[in-house]
Design a binder for these strands. Structure first.
Length: 492
RNA sequence: GCACCGGUGGUGAAGUGGCUAACGCGCUGGUCUGCAAAACCAGUAUUCGCGGGUUCGAUUCCCGCCCGGUGCUCCA
Protein backbone atom coordinates (compact mmCIF):
# COMPACT_ATOMS: atom_id res chain seq x y z
CA UNK A 1 0.00 0.00 0.00
CA UNK A 2 1.27 3.40 -0.85
CA UNK A 3 -1.27 6.15 -0.49
CA UNK A 4 0.03 9.45 -1.73
CA UNK A 5 -1.95 12.23 -0.15
CA UNK A 6 -1.62 15.97 -0.44
CA UNK A 7 -0.22 17.45 2.74
CA UNK A 8 -1.32 21.04 3.38
CA UNK A 9 1.67 21.54 5.66
CA UNK A 10 4.27 20.82 2.99
CA UNK A 11 2.14 21.83 0.05
CA UNK A 12 3.05 18.55 -1.63
CA UNK A 13 1.66 15.14 -2.29
CA UNK A 14 3.38 12.81 0.14
CA UNK A 15 3.11 9.23 1.15
CA UNK A 16 0.87 8.68 4.15
CA UNK A 17 2.37 6.10 6.44
CA UNK A 18 1.84 5.00 10.00
CA UNK A 19 4.80 4.68 12.33
CA UNK A 20 6.29 1.19 12.21
CA UNK A 21 4.29 -1.25 14.31
CA UNK A 22 1.56 1.25 15.13
CA UNK A 23 -1.91 1.88 13.78
CA UNK A 24 -2.32 4.99 11.70
CA UNK A 25 -3.42 7.73 14.07
CA UNK A 26 -5.87 10.17 12.58
CA UNK A 27 -7.84 12.97 14.11
CA UNK A 28 -10.86 14.27 12.25
CA UNK A 29 -12.44 17.53 13.16
CA UNK A 30 -16.06 16.65 13.80
CA UNK A 31 -19.27 18.60 14.10
CA UNK A 32 -20.44 21.26 16.48
CA UNK A 33 -23.78 19.80 17.45
CA UNK A 34 -26.04 22.83 17.47
CA UNK A 35 -28.24 21.92 14.49
CA UNK A 36 -28.79 19.27 11.82
CA UNK A 37 -25.83 18.56 9.57
CA UNK A 38 -25.87 20.00 6.06
CA UNK A 39 -24.51 18.51 2.87
CA UNK A 40 -21.38 20.62 3.10
CA UNK A 41 -20.55 18.99 6.40
CA UNK A 42 -21.17 15.62 4.88
CA UNK A 43 -18.97 16.19 1.87
CA UNK A 44 -16.11 16.53 4.33
CA UNK A 45 -17.10 13.53 6.40
CA UNK A 46 -17.68 11.37 3.35
CA UNK A 47 -14.25 12.09 1.97
CA UNK A 48 -12.68 11.28 5.31
CA UNK A 49 -14.76 8.11 5.20
CA UNK A 50 -13.43 7.30 1.71
CA UNK A 51 -9.93 7.69 3.11
CA UNK A 52 -10.77 5.59 6.12
CA UNK A 53 -12.37 2.82 4.11
CA UNK A 54 -9.58 2.80 1.58
CA UNK A 55 -6.95 2.46 4.31
CA UNK A 56 -8.92 -0.44 5.74
CA UNK A 57 -9.20 -2.05 2.33
CA UNK A 58 -5.44 -1.78 2.07
CA UNK A 59 -5.08 -3.44 5.43
CA UNK A 60 -3.83 -0.43 7.38
CA UNK A 61 -4.81 -0.61 11.07
CA UNK A 62 -6.47 2.60 12.16
CA UNK A 63 -6.93 4.63 15.27
CA UNK A 64 -9.37 7.25 14.14
CA UNK A 65 -10.67 9.87 16.54
CA UNK A 66 -13.38 12.39 15.88
CA UNK A 67 -14.34 15.14 18.25
CA UNK A 68 -17.86 16.24 18.97
CA UNK A 69 -17.94 19.89 19.94
CA UNK A 70 -20.79 19.98 22.40
CA UNK A 71 -20.08 23.28 24.07
CA UNK A 72 -19.45 26.63 22.44
CA UNK A 73 -20.99 30.08 22.29
CA UNK A 74 -23.56 29.17 19.67
CA UNK A 75 -24.70 26.11 21.62
CA UNK A 76 -24.96 28.11 24.82
CA UNK A 77 -27.04 30.76 23.12
CA UNK A 78 -29.36 28.24 21.45
CA UNK A 79 -29.77 26.12 24.55
CA UNK A 80 -30.58 29.19 26.59
CA UNK A 81 -33.12 30.33 24.02
CA UNK A 82 -34.73 26.89 24.13
CA UNK A 83 -34.68 26.89 27.90
CA UNK A 84 -32.66 23.70 27.98
CA UNK A 85 -29.41 22.62 29.52
CA UNK A 86 -26.62 22.43 26.99
CA UNK A 87 -26.48 18.68 27.55
CA UNK A 88 -30.13 18.19 26.67
CA UNK A 89 -29.83 20.55 23.77
CA UNK A 90 -26.80 18.90 22.18
CA UNK A 91 -27.91 15.32 22.84
CA UNK A 92 -30.61 15.66 20.21
CA UNK A 93 -28.28 16.96 17.53
CA UNK A 94 -25.50 14.58 18.35
CA UNK A 95 -27.92 11.68 17.95
CA UNK A 96 -29.15 13.17 14.68
CA UNK A 97 -25.59 13.54 13.47
CA UNK A 98 -24.80 9.90 14.17
CA UNK A 99 -28.01 8.85 12.43
CA UNK A 100 -27.05 10.92 9.42
CA UNK A 101 -23.61 9.34 9.29
CA UNK A 102 -25.23 5.94 9.26
CA UNK A 103 -27.71 7.00 6.59
CA UNK A 104 -24.86 8.06 4.36
CA UNK A 105 -22.83 4.93 4.94
CA UNK A 106 -20.16 6.83 6.84
CA UNK A 107 -18.40 4.56 9.29
CA UNK A 108 -18.00 5.72 12.84
CA UNK A 109 -14.44 6.35 13.91
CA UNK A 110 -12.91 4.16 16.59
CA UNK A 111 -13.33 6.98 19.09
CA UNK A 112 -15.74 9.82 19.52
CA UNK A 113 -14.37 12.46 21.85
CA UNK A 114 -16.80 14.88 23.44
CA UNK A 115 -15.46 18.22 24.54
CA UNK A 116 -17.58 18.30 27.68
CA UNK A 117 -16.13 15.00 28.85
CA UNK A 118 -12.55 16.17 28.58
CA UNK A 119 -12.51 19.53 30.28
CA UNK A 120 -9.76 18.58 32.71
CA UNK A 121 -7.44 17.71 29.81
CA UNK A 122 -7.98 21.17 28.42
CA UNK A 123 -7.43 22.86 31.74
CA UNK A 124 -4.18 20.92 32.11
CA UNK A 125 -3.02 22.01 28.69
CA UNK A 126 -3.76 25.65 29.38
CA UNK A 127 -1.82 25.44 32.65
CA UNK A 128 1.10 23.94 30.83
CA UNK A 129 1.05 26.75 28.29
CA UNK A 130 0.99 29.31 31.07
CA UNK A 131 3.99 27.64 32.71
CA UNK A 132 5.84 27.77 29.44
CA UNK A 133 5.10 31.44 29.03
CA UNK A 134 2.99 30.96 25.91
CA UNK A 135 -0.28 31.89 27.55
CA UNK A 136 -1.48 34.55 29.93
CA UNK A 137 -4.49 35.45 31.97
CA UNK A 138 -6.39 38.54 30.93
CA UNK A 139 -8.00 40.96 33.35
CA UNK A 140 -11.43 39.41 32.88
CA UNK A 141 -10.16 35.96 33.85
CA UNK A 142 -9.91 34.52 30.35
CA UNK A 143 -6.71 32.91 29.16
CA UNK A 144 -5.11 33.67 25.84
CA UNK A 145 -2.40 32.19 23.72
CA UNK A 146 0.42 34.56 22.90
CA UNK A 147 0.99 34.17 19.20
CA UNK A 148 4.23 36.09 19.36
CA UNK A 149 5.65 33.21 21.40
CA UNK A 150 5.28 30.74 18.55
CA UNK A 151 7.55 31.52 15.59
CA UNK A 152 5.99 28.84 13.41
CA UNK A 153 2.60 30.53 13.46
CA UNK A 154 1.16 30.59 9.94
CA UNK A 155 3.10 27.63 8.59
CA UNK A 156 0.00 25.60 7.78
CA UNK A 157 -2.12 28.27 6.14
CA UNK A 158 0.98 29.99 4.71
CA UNK A 159 0.01 33.25 6.28
CA UNK A 160 2.48 36.04 6.57
CA UNK A 161 2.05 37.56 10.00
CA UNK A 162 3.51 40.84 8.81
CA UNK A 163 0.38 41.30 6.74
CA UNK A 164 -1.86 40.83 9.71
CA UNK A 165 -1.54 44.04 11.63
CA UNK A 166 -2.88 44.39 15.10
CA UNK A 167 -5.96 46.39 15.67
CA UNK A 168 -7.75 45.73 12.40
CA UNK A 169 -10.61 44.03 14.14
CA UNK A 170 -11.02 43.89 17.85
CA UNK A 171 -14.03 42.32 19.45
CA UNK A 172 -15.75 44.28 22.17
CA UNK A 173 -14.85 41.89 24.95
CA UNK A 174 -11.33 41.24 23.77
CA UNK A 175 -9.77 44.45 24.99
CA UNK A 176 -7.69 42.62 27.52
CA UNK A 177 -5.60 40.65 25.06
CA UNK A 178 -1.99 41.69 24.58
CA UNK A 179 -2.37 41.39 20.84
CA UNK A 180 -5.51 41.29 18.75
CA UNK A 181 -4.32 38.09 17.11
CA UNK A 182 -3.99 36.22 20.39
CA UNK A 183 -6.80 33.77 20.76
CA UNK A 184 -8.78 32.50 23.72
CA UNK A 185 -7.78 29.24 25.37
CA UNK A 186 -10.25 29.57 28.19
CA UNK A 187 -13.23 31.88 28.32
CA UNK A 188 -14.14 33.20 31.72
CA UNK A 189 -17.83 32.90 32.57
CA UNK A 190 -19.92 36.00 32.71
CA UNK A 191 -22.34 36.21 35.63
CA UNK A 192 -25.00 33.48 35.49
CA UNK A 193 -23.39 31.93 32.48
CA UNK A 194 -22.94 28.18 32.08
CA UNK A 195 -19.46 27.24 33.25
CA UNK A 196 -17.13 24.70 34.81
CA UNK A 197 -15.37 25.55 38.05
CA UNK A 198 -11.74 24.74 37.48
CA UNK A 199 -8.21 25.68 38.50
CA UNK A 200 -8.44 28.35 35.82
CA UNK A 201 -11.51 29.82 37.42
CA UNK A 202 -15.12 29.50 36.27
CA UNK A 203 -15.43 29.30 32.52
CA UNK A 204 -15.42 27.13 29.46
CA UNK A 205 -12.76 26.05 27.00
CA UNK A 206 -12.00 27.90 23.81
CA UNK A 207 -12.70 26.01 20.63
CA UNK A 208 -9.16 25.27 19.51
CA UNK A 209 -7.93 23.89 22.81
CA UNK A 210 -10.42 21.06 22.72
CA UNK A 211 -8.89 19.50 19.63
CA UNK A 212 -5.34 19.94 20.86
CA UNK A 213 -6.10 18.34 24.20
CA UNK A 214 -8.14 15.44 22.89
CA UNK A 215 -5.97 14.65 19.89
CA UNK A 216 -2.95 14.46 22.17
CA UNK A 217 -4.79 12.35 24.74
CA UNK A 218 -5.96 9.80 22.21
CA UNK A 219 -3.11 9.81 19.72
CA UNK A 220 -0.06 11.18 21.48
CA UNK A 221 1.82 14.43 21.07
CA UNK A 222 2.74 13.55 17.51
CA UNK A 223 0.40 11.66 15.23
CA UNK A 224 -0.03 10.80 11.58
CA UNK A 225 -2.94 12.70 10.11
CA UNK A 226 -5.32 15.50 10.90
CA UNK A 227 -8.34 16.18 8.68
CA UNK A 228 -11.01 18.81 8.30
CA UNK A 229 -12.81 21.18 5.96
CA UNK A 230 -10.71 23.81 4.22
CA UNK A 231 -12.18 26.56 6.35
CA UNK A 232 -10.62 25.06 9.44
CA UNK A 233 -7.11 25.54 8.14
CA UNK A 234 -7.13 29.05 9.51
CA UNK A 235 -7.46 29.88 12.26
CA UNK A 236 -8.56 26.61 13.88
CA UNK A 237 -5.81 24.26 12.76
CA UNK A 238 -3.16 26.92 12.86
CA UNK A 239 -4.07 27.57 16.49
CA UNK A 240 -4.11 23.88 17.30
CA UNK A 241 -0.56 23.61 16.00
CA UNK A 242 0.56 26.64 17.97
CA UNK A 243 -0.89 25.36 21.23
CA UNK A 244 0.12 21.77 20.86
CA UNK A 245 3.63 22.34 19.65
CA UNK A 246 4.25 25.01 22.25
CA UNK A 247 3.20 22.61 24.96
CA UNK A 248 5.02 19.52 23.73
CA UNK A 249 7.94 20.96 21.85
CA UNK A 250 7.20 18.35 19.20
CA UNK A 251 5.53 18.20 15.83
CA UNK A 252 1.76 17.92 16.26
CA UNK A 253 0.17 16.25 13.22
CA UNK A 254 2.61 15.19 10.51
CA UNK A 255 0.10 15.24 7.70
CA UNK A 256 -2.86 17.58 7.16
CA UNK A 257 -5.72 16.87 4.81
CA UNK A 258 -8.24 19.58 3.97
CA UNK A 259 -11.44 18.98 2.08
CA UNK A 260 -12.59 21.67 -0.28
CA UNK A 261 -15.92 23.35 0.24
CA UNK A 262 -18.77 22.48 -2.01
CA UNK A 263 -20.87 24.97 -3.92
CA UNK A 264 -24.62 24.67 -4.24
CA UNK A 265 -26.02 25.78 -7.59
CA UNK A 266 -22.74 27.57 -8.22
CA UNK A 267 -22.68 29.55 -5.00
CA UNK A 268 -21.40 29.03 -1.53
CA UNK A 269 -24.11 27.39 0.48
CA UNK A 270 -25.70 29.76 2.93
CA UNK A 271 -29.01 30.23 4.56
CA UNK A 272 -29.39 33.73 3.20
CA UNK A 273 -29.01 32.52 -0.39
CA UNK A 274 -31.67 29.88 0.18
CA UNK A 275 -29.38 27.12 -1.05
CA UNK A 276 -28.74 25.57 2.33
CA UNK A 277 -29.69 21.90 2.62
CA UNK A 278 -29.47 19.40 5.38
CA UNK A 279 -29.35 15.71 4.60
CA UNK A 280 -32.90 15.42 5.88
CA UNK A 281 -34.14 18.16 3.55
CA UNK A 282 -32.90 16.17 0.59
CA UNK A 283 -34.30 12.87 1.79
CA UNK A 284 -37.73 14.46 2.17
CA UNK A 285 -37.48 15.77 -1.35
CA UNK A 286 -37.21 12.18 -2.46
CA UNK A 287 -33.48 11.88 -3.10
CA UNK A 288 -31.82 8.67 -2.02
CA UNK A 289 -29.07 8.53 0.53
CA UNK A 290 -26.93 6.50 -1.88
CA UNK A 291 -27.29 9.15 -4.59
CA UNK A 292 -26.29 11.88 -2.16
CA UNK A 293 -23.26 9.91 -1.10
CA UNK A 294 -22.31 9.11 -4.66
CA UNK A 295 -22.63 12.70 -5.82
CA UNK A 296 -20.50 13.92 -2.95
CA UNK A 297 -17.66 11.64 -4.09
CA UNK A 298 -17.96 12.53 -7.78
CA UNK A 299 -15.26 15.15 -7.57
CA UNK A 300 -11.98 14.49 -5.77
CA UNK A 301 -11.74 16.06 -2.34
CA UNK A 302 -9.31 18.81 -3.31
CA UNK A 303 -11.58 20.20 -6.01
CA UNK A 304 -14.68 22.23 -5.58
CA UNK A 305 -17.87 20.28 -6.15
CA UNK A 306 -20.92 22.03 -7.49
CA UNK A 307 -23.89 20.37 -5.85
CA UNK A 308 -27.10 20.60 -7.88
CA UNK A 309 -30.40 18.78 -7.99
CA UNK A 310 -29.62 17.80 -11.54
CA UNK A 311 -26.42 16.24 -10.30
CA UNK A 312 -28.40 14.38 -7.70
CA UNK A 313 -30.66 12.91 -10.37
CA UNK A 314 -27.61 11.92 -12.40
CA UNK A 315 -26.09 10.25 -9.38
CA UNK A 316 -29.33 8.39 -8.75
CA UNK A 317 -29.22 7.00 -12.28
CA UNK A 318 -25.56 6.11 -12.04
CA UNK A 319 -26.05 4.21 -8.78
CA UNK A 320 -29.06 2.44 -10.28
CA UNK A 321 -26.95 1.34 -13.21
CA UNK A 322 -24.27 -0.05 -10.92
CA UNK A 323 -26.83 -1.90 -8.84
CA UNK A 324 -28.52 -3.36 -11.89
CA UNK A 325 -25.16 -4.54 -13.09
CA UNK A 326 -24.21 -6.08 -9.74
CA UNK A 327 -27.56 -7.85 -9.70
CA UNK A 328 -26.99 -9.20 -13.21
CA UNK A 329 -23.57 -10.53 -12.25
CA UNK A 330 -24.92 -12.15 -9.10
CA UNK A 331 -27.98 -13.82 -10.58
CA UNK A 332 -27.40 -14.10 -14.31
CA UNK A 333 -26.83 -17.39 -16.12
CA UNK A 334 -23.65 -17.62 -18.13
CA UNK A 335 -22.02 -20.38 -20.20
CA UNK A 336 -19.34 -22.48 -18.53
CA UNK A 337 -15.70 -21.59 -18.85
CA UNK A 338 -13.70 -18.39 -18.68
CA UNK A 339 -12.87 -15.74 -21.21
CA UNK A 340 -9.23 -14.75 -20.95
CA UNK A 341 -9.57 -11.23 -22.28
CA UNK A 342 -12.45 -10.45 -19.94
CA UNK A 343 -10.48 -11.79 -17.01
CA UNK A 344 -7.58 -9.62 -18.03
CA UNK A 345 -9.79 -6.54 -18.31
CA UNK A 346 -11.31 -7.29 -14.91
CA UNK A 347 -7.91 -7.42 -13.29
CA UNK A 348 -6.93 -4.23 -15.02
CA UNK A 349 -10.05 -2.49 -13.73
CA UNK A 350 -9.28 -3.66 -10.20
CA UNK A 351 -5.74 -2.39 -10.48
CA UNK A 352 -6.77 0.95 -11.93
CA UNK A 353 -9.34 1.36 -9.21
CA UNK A 354 -6.75 0.95 -6.48
CA UNK A 355 -4.09 2.96 -8.29
CA UNK A 356 -6.48 5.90 -8.72
CA UNK A 357 -7.27 6.01 -5.03
CA UNK A 358 -3.62 5.65 -4.13
CA UNK A 359 -3.04 8.76 -6.20
CA UNK A 360 -4.34 11.33 -3.72
CA UNK A 361 -7.76 9.68 -3.54
CA UNK A 362 -8.80 10.37 -7.10
CA UNK A 363 -12.36 9.21 -6.69
CA UNK A 364 -13.34 10.33 -10.21
CA UNK A 365 -10.77 8.07 -11.83
CA UNK A 366 -11.52 5.21 -9.49
CA UNK A 367 -15.17 5.34 -10.51
CA UNK A 368 -14.23 5.51 -14.18
CA UNK A 369 -12.31 2.24 -13.82
CA UNK A 370 -15.42 0.58 -12.47
CA UNK A 371 -17.73 1.95 -15.15
CA UNK A 372 -15.34 0.71 -17.82
CA UNK A 373 -15.66 -2.75 -16.36
CA UNK A 374 -19.44 -2.44 -16.23
CA UNK A 375 -19.68 -1.58 -19.89
CA UNK A 376 -17.26 -4.31 -20.90
CA UNK A 377 -18.99 -7.00 -18.86
CA UNK A 378 -22.47 -5.97 -19.95
CA UNK A 379 -21.57 -5.92 -23.62
CA UNK A 380 -19.76 -9.24 -23.50
CA UNK A 381 -22.67 -10.74 -21.59
CA UNK A 382 -25.03 -9.51 -24.33
CA UNK A 383 -22.79 -11.15 -26.92
CA UNK A 384 -22.66 -14.38 -24.91
CA UNK A 385 -18.93 -14.10 -24.34
CA UNK A 386 -19.05 -13.62 -20.58
CA UNK A 387 -18.50 -17.00 -18.91
CA UNK A 388 -19.30 -18.42 -15.53
CA UNK A 389 -15.73 -18.27 -14.30
CA UNK A 390 -15.46 -14.60 -15.17
CA UNK A 391 -18.10 -13.73 -12.60
CA UNK A 392 -16.21 -14.25 -9.36
CA UNK A 393 -13.34 -11.90 -10.28
CA UNK A 394 -15.83 -9.25 -11.40
CA UNK A 395 -17.75 -9.54 -8.15
CA UNK A 396 -14.48 -9.23 -6.28
CA UNK A 397 -13.71 -5.93 -7.98
CA UNK A 398 -17.23 -4.73 -7.26
CA UNK A 399 -16.81 -5.69 -3.62
CA UNK A 400 -13.64 -3.64 -3.38
CA UNK A 401 -15.38 -0.75 -5.02
CA UNK A 402 -18.20 -0.97 -2.55
CA UNK A 403 -15.95 -1.28 0.45
CA UNK A 404 -14.85 2.25 -0.39
CA UNK A 405 -17.85 3.85 -2.09
CA UNK A 406 -20.59 1.98 -0.23
CA UNK A 407 -23.51 2.50 -2.58
CA UNK A 408 -24.26 -0.94 -4.04
CA UNK A 409 -25.95 -2.37 -1.01
CA UNK A 410 -29.37 -0.80 -0.90
CA UNK A 411 -30.30 0.82 2.42
CA UNK A 412 -32.16 3.64 0.75
CA UNK A 413 -35.59 2.39 1.61
CA UNK A 414 -34.81 2.11 5.29
CA UNK A 415 -33.15 5.51 5.36
CA UNK A 416 -36.03 7.25 3.62
CA UNK A 417 -38.51 5.55 5.89
CA UNK A 418 -36.50 6.73 8.84
CA UNK A 419 -36.52 10.28 7.49
CA UNK A 420 -40.28 10.16 6.97
CA UNK A 421 -40.84 8.88 10.51
CA UNK A 422 -38.63 11.62 11.84
CA UNK A 423 -40.49 14.24 9.82
CA UNK A 424 -43.79 12.96 11.15
CA UNK A 425 -42.52 13.25 14.70
CA UNK A 426 -41.15 16.74 14.12
CA UNK A 427 -44.31 17.87 12.35
CA UNK A 428 -42.43 18.42 9.15
CA UNK A 429 -44.13 15.92 6.90
CA UNK A 430 -45.34 18.82 4.78
CA UNK A 431 -41.75 19.18 3.57
CA UNK A 432 -41.86 15.74 1.96
CA UNK A 433 -42.97 15.45 -1.66
CA UNK A 434 -46.47 14.01 -2.17
CA UNK A 435 -45.04 11.33 -4.46
CA UNK A 436 -42.67 10.20 -1.74
CA UNK A 437 -45.36 10.06 0.90
CA UNK A 438 -47.67 8.16 -1.45
CA UNK A 439 -44.92 5.75 -2.46
CA UNK A 440 -43.98 4.94 1.10
CA UNK A 441 -47.57 4.52 2.14
CA UNK A 442 -47.40 1.28 0.16
CA UNK A 443 -45.75 -1.61 1.92
CA UNK A 444 -43.43 -3.83 -0.12
CA UNK A 445 -46.09 -6.53 0.20
CA UNK A 446 -48.74 -4.25 -1.25
CA UNK A 447 -46.42 -3.41 -4.12
CA UNK A 448 -45.69 -7.07 -4.75
CA UNK A 449 -49.41 -7.71 -4.86
CA UNK A 450 -50.00 -5.04 -7.49
CA UNK A 451 -47.06 -6.31 -9.49
CA UNK A 452 -48.54 -9.80 -9.42
CA UNK A 453 -51.91 -8.48 -10.50
CA UNK A 454 -50.25 -6.79 -13.45
CA UNK A 455 -48.38 -9.98 -14.35
CA UNK A 456 -51.68 -11.85 -14.50
CA UNK A 457 -53.19 -9.13 -16.65
CA UNK A 458 -50.26 -9.33 -19.01
CA UNK A 459 -50.59 -13.08 -19.27
CA UNK A 460 -54.23 -12.58 -20.19
CA UNK A 461 -52.98 -9.99 -22.70
CA UNK A 462 -55.06 -7.38 -20.95
CA UNK A 463 -52.42 -4.73 -21.54
CA UNK A 464 -54.67 -1.81 -20.73
CA UNK A 465 -55.11 -3.00 -17.16
CA UNK A 466 -51.44 -3.96 -16.85
CA UNK A 467 -50.34 -0.52 -18.03
CA UNK A 468 -52.77 1.18 -15.68
CA UNK A 469 -51.16 -0.57 -12.72
CA UNK A 470 -47.71 0.32 -13.96
CA UNK A 471 -48.77 3.93 -14.32
CA UNK A 472 -50.32 4.00 -10.86
CA UNK A 473 -47.11 2.71 -9.34
CA UNK A 474 -44.98 5.11 -11.36
CA UNK A 475 -46.95 8.00 -9.92
CA UNK A 476 -45.81 6.82 -6.52
CA UNK A 477 -42.22 6.70 -7.63
CA UNK A 478 -42.13 2.95 -8.14
CA UNK A 479 -40.63 1.74 -11.39
CA UNK A 480 -41.00 -1.70 -12.93
CA UNK A 481 -38.68 -3.74 -15.06
CA UNK A 482 -39.88 -6.84 -16.87
CA UNK A 483 -37.14 -9.34 -17.43
CA UNK A 484 -36.87 -12.98 -18.46
CA UNK A 485 -36.84 -14.07 -14.84
CA UNK A 486 -39.62 -11.96 -13.44
CA UNK A 487 -40.50 -8.40 -12.62
CA UNK A 488 -38.22 -6.22 -10.59
CA UNK A 489 -39.39 -3.03 -8.95
CA UNK A 490 -37.46 -0.22 -7.39
CA UNK A 491 -38.10 3.25 -6.19
CA UNK A 492 -37.16 6.16 -8.38
C1' G B 1 -7.21 45.25 -1.18
C1' C B 2 -3.96 40.77 -0.20
C1' A B 3 -3.65 35.37 -0.95
C1' C B 4 -5.17 30.84 -3.15
C1' C B 5 -7.95 27.59 -6.63
C1' G B 6 -10.42 26.85 -11.13
C1' G B 7 -12.26 27.96 -16.42
C1' U B 8 -12.20 21.07 -20.85
C1' G B 9 -18.55 18.53 -25.18
C1' G B 10 -25.64 19.51 -23.93
C1' U B 11 -24.21 18.79 -18.67
C1' G B 12 -21.05 17.00 -14.20
C1' A B 13 -16.10 16.27 -14.79
C1' A B 14 -10.81 13.25 -15.15
C1' G B 15 -6.34 13.86 -17.34
C1' U B 16 -1.69 14.65 -20.11
C1' G B 17 4.25 18.44 -23.02
C1' G B 18 3.38 14.55 -28.63
C1' C B 19 -1.00 7.79 -29.02
C1' U B 20 -8.39 8.09 -31.38
C1' A B 21 -8.95 14.17 -24.72
C1' A B 22 -11.16 9.10 -19.58
C1' C B 23 -15.71 8.22 -17.04
C1' G B 24 -20.90 9.51 -15.45
C1' C B 25 -25.50 11.72 -16.82
C1' G B 26 -28.40 13.56 -20.93
C1' C B 27 -29.95 13.68 -26.00
C1' U B 28 -30.73 11.33 -31.21
C1' G B 29 -31.13 6.79 -34.10
C1' G B 30 -31.07 1.39 -33.86
C1' U B 31 -31.39 -3.89 -31.50
C1' C B 32 -34.63 -6.12 -27.77
C1' U B 33 -39.91 -5.56 -25.76
C1' G B 34 -47.25 -6.19 -26.47
C1' C B 35 -45.65 -1.11 -25.11
C1' A B 36 -42.05 0.27 -21.71
C1' A B 37 -37.85 -0.43 -18.52
C1' A B 38 -33.01 -2.57 -18.24
C1' A B 39 -28.87 -3.79 -21.36
C1' C B 40 -26.20 -3.25 -25.83
C1' C B 41 -24.64 -0.79 -30.65
C1' A B 42 -23.92 3.92 -33.39
C1' G B 43 -23.82 9.25 -33.13
C1' U B 44 -23.07 13.48 -29.93
C1' A B 45 -15.46 18.51 -28.13
C1' U B 46 -10.72 18.73 -35.41
C1' U B 47 -10.75 20.63 -29.43
C1' C B 48 -9.51 22.01 -23.66
C1' G B 49 -11.77 30.91 -21.34
C1' C B 50 -8.95 35.00 -24.39
C1' G B 51 -4.14 37.06 -26.05
C1' G B 52 1.04 36.45 -26.11
C1' G B 53 5.61 33.59 -24.96
C1' U B 54 8.86 29.02 -24.25
C1' U B 55 9.23 24.44 -27.35
C1' C B 56 10.27 20.54 -33.10
C1' G B 57 5.38 20.24 -30.64
C1' A B 58 0.96 23.02 -25.32
C1' U B 59 -5.29 21.85 -23.41
C1' U B 60 -0.97 20.59 -20.30
C1' C B 61 4.85 25.08 -18.69
C1' C B 62 5.47 30.86 -18.27
C1' C B 63 3.29 36.02 -18.56
C1' G B 64 -0.96 39.26 -19.10
C1' C B 65 -6.24 39.81 -19.41
C1' C B 66 -11.37 38.35 -18.67
C1' C B 67 -14.80 35.30 -15.88
C1' G B 68 -16.22 32.16 -11.62
C1' G B 69 -15.16 30.44 -6.71
C1' U B 70 -12.75 30.51 -1.96
C1' G B 71 -9.81 32.26 2.29
C1' C B 72 -8.19 36.71 5.17
C1' U B 73 -14.25 36.76 10.69
C1' C B 74 -18.23 31.96 13.22
C1' C B 75 -18.43 28.23 9.25
C1' A B 76 -17.25 21.36 6.86
Amino acid sequence: MSLRLYNTLSGQVEELKPQPGKPLGMYACGPTVYDYGHIGNFRTFIHVDILRRFLKLEGVPLRHVMNITDVDDKIMAKAAAAGQSIGDYTAKYEAAFLEDLKALGIEQPEYLARATENISLMVGLVEKLVERGCAYRGENGSYYFRIASFPGYGKLSKKDLAGMEDGARVDVDEYDKDSARDFALWKAAKPDEFHWDTELGPGRPGWHIECSAMATAYLGETFDLHTGGEDLMFPHHENEIAQSESASGKTFARHWMHIRFLLVEGKKMSKSLGNFYTLRDLLLRGYKASAIRFLLTAVPYRNQLNFTFEGLTEATNAVERLRTFAQRMRTGEFPAGSDASILEATQRAGKNFIASLEDDLNTAEARAAIFELVRLANSSADRGELKQDNIAPILEVLAKFDQVFAVLEDHDDAVTRFALDWAAKENRLNEATPELVAGYSLSPEAIDKLVEERTQARKARNFAHADAIRKELAEKGILLEDSADGVRWHRK
